[in-house]
Simulated scan of single mutants.
Amino acid sequence: MSNPSFISFSGVSKSYDGAQYVVDGLNLDVRKGEFLSLLGPSGSGKTTTLMMLAGFESPTHGEIRLDGRRLDDKPPHQRDIGMVFQNYALFPHLTIAENVAFPLSVRHVSRAEQKTRVKRALEMIELPHLANRRPAQLSGGQQQRVALARALVFEPSVVLMDEPLGALDKHLRETMQYEIMRLHRELSLTVVYVTHDQAEALTMSDRVAVFSDGRIQQVATPSELYENAQNAFVANFVGENNGLTGRVVNAGEDWATLALSDGSVIRGRCEPGLRAGDEAMLALRPERAHIPSAEGAHVDEHSNVVRARVEELVYCGDHHRVHLALGSRDSFVVKVPNTQRHALPSPGSTIEIAWRHDDCKILAMSVPRSAPTLHVSTPPSPSLITTAPAGAN
C-alpha cells in the first residue's frame, strides 16, 4: 500500500444529547506528512472532529487510530499531538521563551535540552530576538507564531490547528498561511487544519474534507474540489458558483442535458445516478463563462449558449464582474479579465453568454437532513493545550 493511513477515523459519531449527532458516521484517513483541512460552515462538525482527535472530546461511537494504535481511549497528554488555537492561549505572565518551553517542562525534559529546543523553535519562526518579552508586547501575528512554536517544540507526531488565523487581518493572514506551509514542508509535519475559509483551505492543503450537517460531503485535492464537485453543497460552498437550477432532460453516465427556467437547454458533465425529470443544479464558475461578442470569439458545437440581460457592471481591479439576469428568476455572474482586448457590454443590453460543455457540471439537488445539535466547545486552558501529564504543576 503506497499511502498507508496514519490517522484513521472509523465509524466515528458524536452526540451530546443521545438523540442528534454533531458528527455522524465519520470515516476518514489522513496520510503521514499530509496537510488536510477540514472545511465547512459553523456547526458542520469540523471542530468537534478535531477535538475528538486531540482528546478533548470523546466519540459516542467508533474509533480513532494514530499510526495503527487506538487513540480514543487515551487522555490528551498520551497522544503526542500539538495544538494551535485561534485565541493563541499563551500564558500572559510568562516570557515567550517560557511559553514555548512549557510543553517540555511538563514532560520533564532537562533544562539544557529545553534551552536548545526553545532556541531552535524561536529561530524556526524567526522570533529569537523576542524571547524575553511577554505575550502582550507582541502583535497578533507574532503571538500566533509563538503558539505555533509551542505546538512544535516537543516534536509531536501530529499538529492540529483550529482556525488559527481567524483573528488576523487579511495581509497578516496570508503571510501566516505561507509561514505554516513552509514549516509543514520543511519539517514534514502531519497537519489537520480546521477552517471555514474556502480560499485558505484551497491555498494551503494537500487535500480538503468538506463538512456539512455532521457528515463529510467530499474529500479531494483543492483542484478536484473546485473543478469537480460531487454535489450541490460542495459546488456552492467551495469558491463562487453560478448555481442555476432546472430539470434534467436526459442523462447518461458522464453527461446530462438540463432545461433551465428560461427555456434554455444546456449540456454538461454529471455524476452517475442522475435521471431524466430530476431537479438539478448547474455548477459553473464565473471565470469559465465568457461573452463572445465582446471578445470576437467563435462559439463551437462544444459550447453552451444562453441569452441574458446585463444588470450591473462591477469593477474589481484585475477583472470586471458582469451581473446578468437569465429569464425572470435566475441571476448569473461572468468575470471578464481587465484587459484592453475586452469590450464591456452596456447595462440593460441583452447579450449571449457561452461556456464549454466540459467546464460545467450538472448536479442533483441535495436533500438536507435535519440540523444537528450545535455545541460550542470552549477551548481548553493553556495547561491542557500543552497536554501536560496528570499532576503536573
Score class of each variant (00 low, 15 high):
V210L: 05
L244Y: 04
H302N: 14
V265Y: 00
N304R: 11
N228H: 14
L313P: 06
V194E: 02
V208H: 01
G246M: 07
M281P: 01
I216W: 11
N242Y: 10
N241E: 09
E253H: 07
T257M: 03
F237D: 05
L244Q: 08
A283S: 15
T257C: 03
E200S: 12
E240T: 14
L258A: 09
E253T: 12
C270A: 10
A235N: 09
V210H: 08
N228S: 14
A294Y: 01
A201R: 02
A209F: 04
E295A: 14
G252C: 05
S261E: 15
I266Y: 02
A235S: 08
L260N: 04
L258R: 05
V310I: 14
N231W: 09
V305C: 08
V238F: 02
F237A: 10
S303K: 00
D254Q: 13
E287Y: 07
Q198F: 05
A308L: 08
G263F: 06
R215F: 00
L244F: 03
R309L: 09
V306Q: 04
V248W: 08
M204P: 13
P272E: 03
V194T: 03
R309D: 04
E312M: 12
E295P: 00
V192E: 00
W255N: 03
Q230P: 03
F233H: 07
N304L: 05
V265P: 01
Q218S: 06
N304C: 11
P286I: 07
L284R: 07
H290V: 01
N231A: 10
N304I: 09
E200D: 08
A259S: 14
Y193I: 04
R275F: 06
T245K: 14
F233V: 05
A276D: 08
R309A: 14
V238W: 02
L258M: 12
V306S: 09
S205N: 13
M281I: 13
D262C: 08
Y226F: 15
R247N: 11
R275Y: 06
S205K: 12
E287V: 07
L202C: 12
V265N: 03
N250I: 01
L260P: 01
R285I: 07
A232E: 14
A229E: 05
A201L: 10
D206G: 10
S303D: 13
A251D: 02
V310F: 11
Q230W: 04
R275H: 15
A220Q: 06
S223D: 15
V210E: 03
G277T: 13
D206L: 09
D300N: 15
S205H: 09
A280H: 07
V310W: 10
A229C: 12
M281R: 11
L282M: 13
H196T: 00
E271G: 00
A209W: 02
T257W: 07
S303I: 00
E279D: 11
V234N: 06
C270S: 15
T245S: 13
A259C: 05
R247I: 11
E311L: 12
D213C: 01
G273N: 07
R207Y: 09
A199M: 07
W255L: 14
N242W: 08
R309K: 15
V249M: 10
L244C: 14
A289C: 04
L244A: 13
T221V: 07
H196G: 05
D278Q: 11
A235I: 09
A276F: 08
V208D: 02
A289T: 02
A220F: 11
A220K: 08
N231E: 06
N304P: 09
Y226M: 10
N304V: 12
A199K: 15
A283Y: 02
S212T: 00
